[in-house]
Every structure is written in structure tokens, then in C-alpha cells.
Design a protein around this nucleic acid. Structure first.
Lengths: 161, 161
DNA sequence: CAAGATTGAGTAGTCAATCTTC
DNA sequence: GAAGATTGACTACTCAATCTTG
């Protein structure tokens, strides 16, 4: 296979590195702040948000999975840990013995309601508010362009894994 | 504390979500491709690149750490796993008994040389080549702006952890 | 067999505590 | 005590295999 590798030129490198760096640093900053101030990790937060937006604060596992776009087993493991922490509980599904509901516990509800405003404030402070509306629009365009390109290859779409 | 939480408006939400989505999907795509084609994970790749760019393919642990911007213990754990896989080895540091060198093994050298062109090709295909030079420039600007904002708070700078 | 979900083993990453040498 | 580095315990994520019911 003649790979014809074209290396990245200086400009491309800089853009790519800056983007990688941004991802890592911003994620780390947000995670730490969330953890410190609310005791929730990022995945915990995401799962609780999804449940809190659902009617009665509960969803079937597969529905939660579509919402979060996580892998099957990742979601199962996460639910297990969060059940142990008391944030969430499993409920049998009347009508379909194969199925399972995941529901917010009162503690889970309380946790997400306390955490949401904190998290939004962080996203504002470190991301939204330092950018101009034009920059946000441009970033969104870039993101959507790249995402559209990924779809063409259909790989990633969480498989039955 | 009166938090004065301003939620994100529609435009802000869209930009933020698109950015989050981009991160997750692109990272997943690149990781899988790299793993499948070269047998290396993303962190393994990163560490090998750093060593391969150093004279004699070796660095002190602390130098590697500055380069990668990883936490101390993360790096130690990673080196341990990669030593077990035979990609890398620890060498005593003449002159400073506290210190340790991490060096590429021949297997590690071979692995990174095989993997690099593949990885660059992926970054090109899914990221660089779908964007215009103007978009890349704009993205870089956005990334650097946000990163500069993070520095003001100096938190994250991997501490002695 | 397919859909819904779980299990187990392995790799990653974080935090707090520890060890050693300067 | 501080610098250089490691350890252990825990959360998180992936892959492959499994279990159960339709």
C-alpha cells in the first residue's frame, strides 16, 4: 500500500495541537470544578441530566443509551456504580421482563438540581463568555462540518457492543 | 451566595453541544482507527511520539511529563503498562539516583514508526481536509483564546499530584 | 436468531499517601 | 523540607462473551 503520507504543515499542526490542547485542558478544568463543588463526576452529571429531563425522572436503559450515545456496557457499568452511590435505581419494567428502567432517586434529583447551575456557570465563565458570538458561530460551523464528515463513514455509531 | 445563574441561550447551547459532540466523536473515531490498524492506544501513541522526538529516544520522567502535560501518577502508571508490553524501558540515571530515564525499546521504535503515518492520515482525512484554511485559522484562534482564559485561573497546571 | 441488558478482563486517569535522595 | 518518582484504591471506558426472553 503506497500510503502517500502528507505530513501536516506548520499551520495545520498549530491548529490541530491547539484543538487537542483545548479539549484536554477545558475538560480537566470543568471536571475538577464540578467534582470539587458538587461531588459529581462528569459522566455522573451527564447521566443525571438525561434522567432529570425525562418524564418522572426515569428512562429505559436503551433510551438513555440513545440519548447519551454511550456504549451498552459503559452505561451498564455506570448505572451500577451510581446505584451503589444511591443516585439512581433500577426498576423492573412491567410488560417486558427483558427491560429495565433507570430512575432518579430523591438523592439523585437533589444532586442534579444543585449541580446544574454550578456547571452552567463554569461553562459560561471559561468558554462562552470569553468568545464572541461570531467565534461561537464559527466554532459551531466547524464542529458540524467535521461531524458530517464522520457520518459518511459510519463506523462509530455505537454498535451492539 | 447569590449565584445569578444565566442559562445558555439557544445559540450558545448549540455551539457548546456541537463542540462537545465533536470532541467525543472525533476522539472515538481516531482511537478506534489507531487501535485497529496499529495496535496502539492513543496514550501509548502520544508517549511514543514524545520519546521518538527526543535525542536517543529517551527522556527523564519529569521531562516527559512537561512535554505531555500529564499528571505524575498517570505517567508512572502508563510507563509501567508500556514496560510490560515491551514498548519502553526504565533506565537508571547516572549522577542522580533519584532520577529515571524512560527509553524506547526497538519494538517501541518500530511501533511508532509504523503508526505515525497512519495516524496523520486519519487526522487529515477526518479533520484537516474537511476544513478550509480559514476555518482552521479560526479554530486555532478560538482554542487559544479559551486556553488563555484558563491560564488566568491557574488551577489545572498539573500540580504535584 | 435478535433485542435488551449484564459480566469480566484489560487499559486509562485521578487523588492522596508514601518513599528516597538532595 | 522539596524534588523525583511510585503505590494503591477508585472511577471510567472498551471489547468480547454471556444470559434471558421474545
Amino acid at each position: 500500500v503506497t500510503e502517500d503520507t502528507r505530513w501536516l504543515d506548520a499551520t495545520e499542526q498549530q491548529a490541530w495541537r491547539a484543538f487537542l490542547n483545548l479539549q484536554v485542558r477545558l475538560r480537566r478544568r470543568l471536571n475538577r470544578a464540578l467534582q470539587r463543588e458538587t461531588g459529581l463526576s462528569d459522566p455522573e452529571y451527564g447521566l443525571l441530566v438525561a434522567l432529570s429531563e425525562a418524564p418522572e425522572g426515569r428512562l429505559r436503559v436503551y433510551a438513555l443509551r440513545e440519548d447519551l450515545q454511550w456504549e451498552k456496557s459503559r452505561l451498564t457499568h455506570q448505572i451500577t456504580r451510581m446505584t451503589e452511590r444511591g443516585l439512581v435505581e433500577r426498576q423492573p419494567c412491567p410488560g417486558d421482563p427483558r427491560g429495565t428502567f433507570v430512575a432518579l432517586t430523591p438523592a439523585g434529583r437533589a444532586a442534579i438540581e444543585a449541580a446544574a447551575p454550578r456547571h452552567v456557570a463554569h461553562v459560561r465563565r471559561w468558554f462562552i463568555d470569553v468568545l464572541t458570538p461570531a467565534q461561537l458561530a464559527s466554532l459551531r460551523e466547524v464542529a458540524e462540518t467535521v461531524l458530517a464528515g464522520l457520518d459518511d463513514h459510519e463506523d462509530d455509531l455505537d454498535n451492539d457492543r
